[in-house]
């Protein structure tokens, strides 16, 4: 049986953000901007983790994934090294609809800057004028800045704490752009759901078409489980086969945010346990007689 894929390179972009390049020639060849993959760190016990494709090299036959260690599963993924194999399924979802809109504003937040890059690039190549708004909590979490700066006609950078660029949320410059005349023809936003929600609220009064790439809970990613459902304009849609991009003004953001929190408590517990285990591993690896704390009994 085949089906696992080798990690060919790995780097750490910040304390919490990792970049891996995975051998997957067919995925590299087929994928288009806006699509994602599902990965598993092993075939037995791993969660299925949806990650948007940051980049692909059809010649080398690799795809690049950028992820933040937000929970136990992404932590375990981050422990994988070049030469290790992981499960990877894709490319999933519908590609971003790219055309010559005129002026396109691409808003990315945190880890969302990675998947924003191929979309901004495709929009640029289709002849759009592209403004990129990059946002992050702090300077350390601003990724893909050189790449984005290289394609953007205009690049606005904000951080929550002001450690780099403007001290602001992305919605502030977005609002300013909306008030320019003429206003943007299209806005694309990828990032934390709460950020996308507020981007939608920012553009709504101006009637500017706004697309958001949704990152719901997913299992199969093939249209079988229904776990990824969200309400769009009052009808239930499935993000893995109908999305991942939807009209941001029609998304039921509050419903989606609630569903994303389904496993919050369990995940927090797993995450804490995972941190503890990693700490134990570290201590054991030091081998200097440092005593590992007692393992918390598995619940």
């Amino acid at each position: 049986m085949h089906g696992t894929h080798k990690i060919v390179s790995k780097s750490q972009l910040s304390e919490e953000v990792f970049r891996i390049e995975v051998q997957a020639p067919l995925v590299a060849q087929e994928r288009k901007a806006g699509q994602f993959v599902i990965v598993m760190y092993d075939e037995d016990f791993s969660e299925r983790i949806p990650l948007t494709i940051a980049d692909a090299d059809p010649v080398r036959g690799t795809v690049t994934l950028i992820f933040q260690t937000v929970g136990a599963s992404t932590h375990k993924l981050a422990l994988k090294n070049p030469g290790d194999s992981i499960v990877l399924l894709g490319p999933l979802g519908n590609p971003t609809h790219i055309e010559r809109f005129g002026w396109a504003v691409c808003v990315g937040g945190g880890i969302g800057l990675a998947p924003l890059h191929p979309i901004a690039k495709a929009l640029k190549e289709a002849g759009n004028r592209v403004t990129v708004i990059s946002g992050a909590r702090t300077k350390d979490l601003l990724i893909m800045q050189d790449e984005l700066a290289a394609i953007a006609d205009e690049h606005i950078v904000v951080t929550d704490d002001g450690s780099f660029g403007r001290k602001a949320l992305v919605t502030e410059p977005l609002g300013e752009l909306c008030r320019r005349a003429p206003s943007p023809d299209i806005v694309v936003t990828i990032g934390p759901p709460i950020m996308m929600k507020f981007c939608a609220e920012t553009t709504r009064p101006y009637g500017i078409k706004t697309l958001a790439s949704l990152n719901t809970i997913m299992l199969d990613g093939t249209g079988m489980c229904g776990g990824c459902r969200v309400s769009i304009g009052g009808t239930t849609k499935f993000v893995c086969v109908d999305g991942p991009e939807f009209d941001a003004h029609l998304v039921d953001w509050d419903g989606m945010l609630m569903r994303l929190g389904t496993y919050k408590e369990i995940e927090k517990e797993a995450h804490d346990r995972c941190h503890l285990e990693m700490r134990i591993e570290e201590l054991e690896a030091q081998g200097d007689g440092a005593r590992a704390p007692e393992k918390e009994p598995a619940k």
Binding site: F45, E47, C225, G226, S231, G255, R259, Y263
Partner: peptide, 30 residues
């Protein structure tokens, strides 16, 4: 039907069977 705690049988069973969520502590899937 989109409230937290409503699942399709496919999702519920896939978590439990294929992704072994019944092995708490071992399985990554909650």
């Amino acid at each position: 039907e989109n409230l937290v705690g409503v699942f399709s049988a496919n999702e519920y069973l896939t978590r439990a069977n294929l992704l072994k969520a019944y092995m708490k502590g071992k399985a990554g899937t909650p």
